[in-house]
């Protein structure tokens, strides 16, 4: 078996400033990894580098492509990288407006990835889009509505449907529950958790919310000032943190 993602010595500098430094890990099929750390710890930079959106200064990100096995994603031609991003990968942005077309209907938002990979049967595209709206608990009657009329939680679920419709193997999520009400968060988390299990998705989830990682992530990577300070099984890192920073992070969480 090969890992889905193999990251070694990944470094991204912004001039003299460190974005992230010397990050190495492997992600296996079906595995969900959480990246936690405070703002500015480099977790978003790392996520951008991993998801082919920001070229690293040094180090490699290899992905297990269906054709050639482990391949450096930054060595792929742009068409192949784009194809990868819209078939095998999903990217869930914190702000769903960054990941959706706000001017076209919910159905078209979900169907776009299908059309992008060659689907040309309207009825089939629409049926598939409707099925995905159902899976993310959006009323099928809203299929022709513009996302502008959706609530924040619905928008995020729509974004998730748009990403999952091509059955990706790896999904990158940047603060997927950020900016949502607590009750909406809980619903979204439960949905994500179920989808991840049902579809056997691998995922990298960036968040500053430790509760999110406990529910979603199998393992955790704690970042501080661009470097990984602790890794391990999620419950082990949260219940028995070793690094001073992780202990501070865990002890800083307010218990309701």
């Amino acid at each position: 078996m090969t890992p889905l993602l193999q990251v070694s010595g990944l470094t991204r500098m912004y001039g003299n400033r460190v974005g992230c430094r010397d990050v190495s890990f492997e992600l296996w099929p079906g595995e969900v990894m959480g990246i936690v750390g405070e703002s500015g710890s480099g977790k978003s930079t790392l996520l951008s580098c991993l998801s082919a959106r920001l070229e690293p200064t040094s180090g490699t990100v290899a992905y297990d492509t269906r054709e050639d096995g482990l391949t450096d994603i930054y060595a792929l031609s742009e068409p192949r990288r784009r194809l990868l991003m819209r078939t095998d990968w999903g990217i869930v942005h914190q702000n769903p407006r960054d990941g959706l077309r706000m001017g076209v209907s919910a159905g078209a938002n979900v169907g776009e990835r299908l059309m992008a990979v060659g689907a040309r049967h309207y009825g089939a595209i629409r049926a598939e889009a409707g099925e995905w709206l159902r899976k993310v608990e959006i009323d099928a009657e809203r299929i022709d509505d513009l996302p502008l009329t959706f609530s924040g939680g619905m928008l995020q679920r729509l974004q998730i449907a748009r990403n999952l419709v091509t059955h990706p193997r790896l999904v990158f999520m940047d603060e997927p529950t950020g900016g949502l009400d607590v009750s909406v968060q809980a619903r979204l988390l439960d949905l994500l958790r179920r989808l991840v299990i049902d579809l056997g998705l691998a995922a990298v989830v960036v968040t500053h919310d430790l509760a999110v990682t406990r529910l979603l992530a199998h393992r955790l990577m704690v970042m501080r000032r661009g470097e990984v300070v602790e890794t391990g099984l999620t419950d082990q890192v949260l219940d028995d943190p070793h690094h001073p920073y992780t202990q501070l992070l865990v002890s800083s969480v307010l218990q309701p």
Partner: peptide, 9 residues
């Protein structure tokens, strides 16, 4: 007990 479960390192 937690060590046995991998919850404690």
């Amino acid at each position: 007990l937690r060590c046995l479960y991998g919850n404690c390192k």
